[in-house]
Design a protein around this nucleic acid. Structure first.
Lengths: 334, 334
DNA sequence: GTGAAAGCGCTAACAG
DNA sequence: CTGTTAGCGCTTTCAC
């Protein structure tokens, strides 16, 4: 087991000091073209690569960021994460991915852990609105789809209000008169906006509805089944088809609703039309119309913004960027 | 912006040297109960936490591992990754997640990058069999579902041969006479085993089939559609239903096959029965029978094994652990 | 029981 | 243009 090659080793071989090697490796300071070549050759020959930990300790930069995600198992999130990782990878950043499972406690714990491990920045994804109040927040943060109450974070979100509007408009356009809203039981910021947009259009058309037209169900892959059950129950109680259109704030929810309806022999889209949200492949492959969020851009923009903040070292004012959404029509509303 | 608190700061406050503080923080060396208390109180009061980078540089341990994954967007992988992360989190390890996109080049690149960032170990997940030959492999590695050709790595895999057998047995048991195999176009280790198991049972029952009964299609979420198309084409050419049972080496493939059949008005399971592989939620929600792999155990065991290897610092011989699989029956074979 | 000192591998002044 | 020096924050002998 030969000894690990360090910058000093290269320096000795090249007959210069480690400082000089450091300079050519970082394109900083000055050095002659000649020594540069000698060093570069040596580096290549021995496949020397500088120890990132030492560098990190010295420079207080780790080329590492953290991403805190509610559930990587959910395609909506994993696609955002993938986009983040791809963009970061190109720029030499690595990313720690942490599953918070929506728990604030875990988020905080991860935050501390990541800070210690020296991440240069953090991306928070979450449907939840609440966000810890870090007094000593020294690293840049960008949030996706959440609206923290403190400053010095950038925010990337997609136009949830618009998404809700699009859904309502299409349903009404297709002749639906009695709409049903299937939503997450929690009131995360994105959900609230979607619902607001949806209701806004309903009102514009003189349609109104109260709680009894809104079903709040569990959300998440593991709970999708219970969503269906809950839905079935409610439907059963009503004992008659009281609606002809459904807007679900998630594709999984839409899928649950669809299965429940099919279980009762209801025809889609003839009797009931359905629109989901996120446009994950589940929607694509089960022919569910859905509001598409540009997951790739969401991730890429967040990473781009974060790295900007990291590398400029300048306190940018809290900014917000909103991406457009679009309706992807499939069989469930045709 | 107050100065960051270091071990020296605590030492000064406590009126001792940094060495002593280090000792109590790491339960190492000796110190009096009294100084221990003073220090611990100070630590708590100021919420001091030692800088992980410095510690890492000094000790050559980072409490960090890397996980190289083909595609985190694929639920099969993301669930394994989640299990890894959960287990590691409990033990204070963080994990870098890297998407290789099945590219060997990227794998190698990530490998080097991670090594530099000082990860203590690595987990490789992949359907691909080929694995780079690292001469200078200094950190422990565990592989999930791949069989590298060099030593000093632990291997966790699930019983793919058995999975193939289970599928064939059930299909035959249900009265299928002409089986079709839909498989990945690449010959990754897990696929090969599944096919071997499947064919083994066929032979036992005097059923034989050649290439014309085997469709090789693309795989992966983004290519699922093209799998369907490819399949449709082939089916179309045959111009008649030449089979009554399908075994697909992936749930996505099974789903593609199902959609193709439905597009042609073929009844499932009356005319054709289908069994997929992996048992991801897609299978669950589209009522596809599937061979279940215990994704949570796969991830947990891999992480457990890796951390053992890391902390024991002893060269364990190359080991292999095979997990059992089971058939989950749903409508597609009932 | 405790501290002084050395040093992990690298970079950033500052001299020369 | 290049080298010396002085750490980054922590752990670890080895003296006392």
């Amino acid at each position: 087991m030969k000894k690990k090659l360090t910058i000093k080793g290269i320096a000795e071989m090249a007959g210069v000091s480690s400082a000089t090697v450091s300079k050519v490796l970082n394109n900083t300071g000055r050095y002659s073209e000649e020594t540069k070549q000698t060093i570069l050759d040596l580096v290549k020959e021995h496949d020397y690569r500088p120890n990132a930990v030492a560098k990190s300790l010295r420079t207080r930069k780790s080329k590492t960021i953290g991403a805190i995600v509610p559930d990587i198992t959910n395609e909506f999130f994993s696609r955002i994460v993938l986009a983040i990782e791809n963009y970061c990878g190109e720029l030499g950043y690595s990313v720690f991915i942490c599953n918070s499972n929506e728990s604030e406690e875990k988020e905080l714990q991860y935050f501390k852990e990541l800070e210690l491990k020296g991440v240069d920045g953090l991306i928070y994804l979450s449907a939840s609105d609440e966000l810890f109040q870090m007094k000593t927040q020294r690293i840049p943060i960008v949030c996706i789809d959440r609206m923290p109450k403190f400053h010095n974070v950038a925010i990337i979100t997609s136009d949830n209000f618009q998404g809700g509007m699009l859904a309502a408009e299409r349903l009404i356009e297709k002749g639906c008169k009695n709409l049903l809203l299937v939503r997450d039981y929690r009131d995360g910021f994105p959900t609230i906006e979607r619902v607001r947009g949806f209701e806004h259009v309903l009102r514009k058309h003189g349609l109104e509805f109260g709680e009894e037209r809104t079903i709040k169900v569990e959300v998440g892959i593991t709970q999708a089944k219970s969503a269906v059950d809950h839905y079935l129950q409610t439907y059963h109680k009503e004992n008659a088809l009281k609606f002809d259109g459904i807007f679900a704030t998630t594709d999984w929810l839409a899928f649950g609703a669809k299965q429940a309806l099919e279980g009762y022999g209801v025809n889609i889209p003839e009797q009931v039309k359905i629109i989901g949200y996120d446009n994950i492949s589940l929607a694509q492959y089960t022919s569910l119309s859905s509001i598409n969020q540009d997951k790739e851009s969401l991730g890429k923009l967040a990473a781009e913004r974060l790295i900007q903040m990291i590398e400029q070292e300048t306190d940018v004012p809290s900014q917000m960027l909103t991406l457009p959404v679009e309706l992807v029509e499939r069989d469930s509303t045709r």
